Computed example of a mutant assay.
Amino acid sequence: MKFIAATLLALGMSTPALAQGQASAPTLADLESVSPALSRYTQQGLLGSVWKRSGLTPRERSIVTLSIMIGRGQTSELPFHLDLALENGVKPAEISEIVTHLAFYSGWANATTAVPFVKQAFAGRKIGTDQLPSATPKQLPLNETAEAARVKFVDENFGTISPGLVKDTTDFLFRDLWLRPDLAPRDRSLVTISSLLANGQSAQLGAHMNIGTNNGLTREEIGEIISHSGFYAGWPHAFGAMSVAKSVFEARK
């Protein structure tokens, strides 16, 4: 049985589009031949438990998983998870925006490495460029008060260290990327937190947990992002993120 079919079965799903997707992940037989224990943890722990928990929707879990895999340049299971994300309700325009967003938060090379896989997933479902976001859409409204406070803080602390980065952060990220309408601010926070967590970027993680909370993520949902990420980014990264989250939650009391 293919890994993709077994995953769908474990998730209670079965669709021809997914079952016939181009998955480069190993089969369950491959896992059994190398590590029967890994096969058991995959079926009983990851697929049989984590993906079925109510703390995040399947759509949100797909966003978290894609963000980790793209953000870390891990492509072996990317074809499967792109198909699963589309099946779970992540729109093509949203996947396009996730790739773009991660170029800034995990680096251009990781984002462009994902492009051939996303292109193949879109082609398999006959998704054309008419379903993708404009390069220059009408932006969401800017929270002028919050942005002014952010600019003041960053400029005072880092303006003399790297004026170019400070300017680019304002121009490209917070006055452009975060205002693109085809990925909601709450989803951008899901993507950013997942990517930062997966790459051990704790210096920025606390700030983005605060931004995520302001964008509508609950304390419980942030906790479930961390839990889900343990399987896809590793336990050390997840435990590192818990320490950051604990500080954020205590400060927000």
Rank of each mutant, 00 (worst) to 15 (best):
T218E: 01
F3D: 07
G107N: 02
A6G: 11
I68F: 10
S106N: 11
K2W: 02
L9G: 08
A114L: 02
G73D: 04
D171E: 15
R59G: 03
V191Y: 01
H237R: 14
L140N: 12
N214Q: 14
A93Q: 07
H228C: 13
G240Y: 06
F3E: 11
Q44S: 07
T57Q: 02
M1S: 07
T169W: 13
V99Q: 11
S194K: 06
F249E: 04
L173V: 14
A207W: 10
E32A: 12
P116K: 05
E144I: 12
P236T: 13
N88A: 15
E221C: 08
G21P: 01
S195R: 01
F239N: 05
R125P: 04
S62C: 10
S39Q: 12
A103W: 03
T113A: 14
M13P: 00
A25F: 07
Q20Y: 01
L9D: 15
P58W: 04
R188Q: 10
F3L: 09
K126T: 10
K246Y: 01
H208P: 06
H81D: 10
S202R: 09
R53M: 13
G21C: 14
P185K: 01
E144R: 13
E94F: 08
D155F: 00
G107M: 14
L196H: 00
G212A: 11
F3W: 11
A17Y: 02
A251L: 08
R61W: 01
K167R: 15
I211Q: 04
I63K: 03
A6D: 10
G216K: 13
E220N: 05
A149S: 10
V115K: 05
K253H: 13
S134N: 08
R40G: 04
S76I: 10
P26N: 06
L197W: 08
W108F: 15
L18S: 06
R150W: 07
L179S: 05
T129N: 09
I226M: 03
R252E: 11
A109N: 12
S49R: 04
S96H: 13
G124A: 13
G73W: 08
P36N: 05
L179C: 08
L132H: 03
G216Q: 11
T7N: 04
S54Y: 00
T100Q: 12
F172W: 04
N157M: 12
L183V: 03
G71D: 06
A184H: 12
R175P: 01
A203M: 02
S96Q: 05
E147A: 12
S106F: 07
L18R: 14
G164R: 12
L28S: 08
G71N: 07
A233P: 06
G55H: 04
H237W: 06
P163M: 03
E250V: 05
E60H: 11
L84D: 07
Q74W: 03
